[in-house]
Design a protein around this nucleic acid. Structure first.
Lengths: 148, 148
DNA sequence: TAAATATAGTTGTTTAAACAACTACAAAGG
DNA sequence: CCTTTGTAGTTGTTTAAACAACTATATTTA
């Protein structure tokens, strides 16, 4: 059978094999360094380290996670004493998410592990080619979101 | 904070945002066409359509899914009457996975939907750039698997 | 202003990822 | 032969993705 001849390898890429491998590598490296975070939890913290006090909806938008996913991620991070929900005074629907001192203090060590993992993932790859990968993935993402 | 400045966009790629979008698009298109498969279930069927009668371990290797994952995917596909487990006569540990008539018959319609989804995802992108993406992702995958 | 509509967040369900621990069987080495 | 080691598959647990259905509050508009 050969229906997917020309696009087969491309499918392998979009299917997420490499993404899964990166996810595993990051998790492994977190554990090696006694950081008990998942990739998704880290992604949330990454937004908060730049933009503390934003709403859950903002976190959803910036991480491409749906709202129920954010609710549960924040639940976990709250249990781990890394973030806190603060109800907004003006709009009672909103919950503003703030970092705890612990949530702030782990930034540096976490980012060292993230950057080392990333550096290892892209070792020996030419920057111009990485640039093409970035641009192409952005275009594919836009193609998928803006349905033809 | 700016620890991840230079690699930030690249992280977005490896984090799987585009992969998730593709996954969603495929699921949506399956549903539109009354195909009740997930992307992962389709991936298993894709191997079987080429290589029927292989072991679960082979499916695990070819789809980068771990063994427990394969057990559960095969459970689902068996419930849907798409595949069957046949114990191997010579090696009692092995279970050979075969397609049912239904599992064989849906190949064509499923592949049409997959190919249309893929075609839409990569529309307006030059083949040479896609080739670079393929090669780079393979290299990143190898970098991650063969730890430095 | 009252009713309709929109937004923010939560809960429940199904499916999958990752990993540890387990059973059953096979192959290799003493 | 039999003990050790390896391989194939299963089960259990935690975390996440996707989606529907829901509550509470805000905004719009008739």
């Amino acid at each position: 059978m050969g229906t997917i001849f020309s696009t087969e390898n491309l499918y392998t890429i979009l299917s997420g094999r490499t993404h899964s491998a990166f996810n595993r590598a990051l998790l492994t490296n977190f554990r090696k360094n006694n950081i008990s975070l998942t990739k998704e939890q880290w992604t949330i913290l990454g937004v908060l380290w730049k933009n503390e006090g934003c709403t859950q909806q903002t976190l959803a938008d910036q991480t491409s996670t749906d709202k129920p996913g954010i609710t549960r991620l924040i639940d976990h991070l709250e249990k781990e004493n890394l973030v806190e929900r603060h109800p907004d005074a003006n709009d009672k629907r909103l919950k503003l998410i703030f970092l705890t001192p612990k949530g702030k203090s782990i930034e540096k060590e976490v980012m060292i592990v993230v950057n080392e993992t990333l550096k290892n993932a892209i070792r020996d790859i030419e920057p111009e080619r990485l640039e093409i990968v970035k641009e192409t993935f952005l275009q594919i993402y836009n193609n998928l979101e803006t349905k033809k």
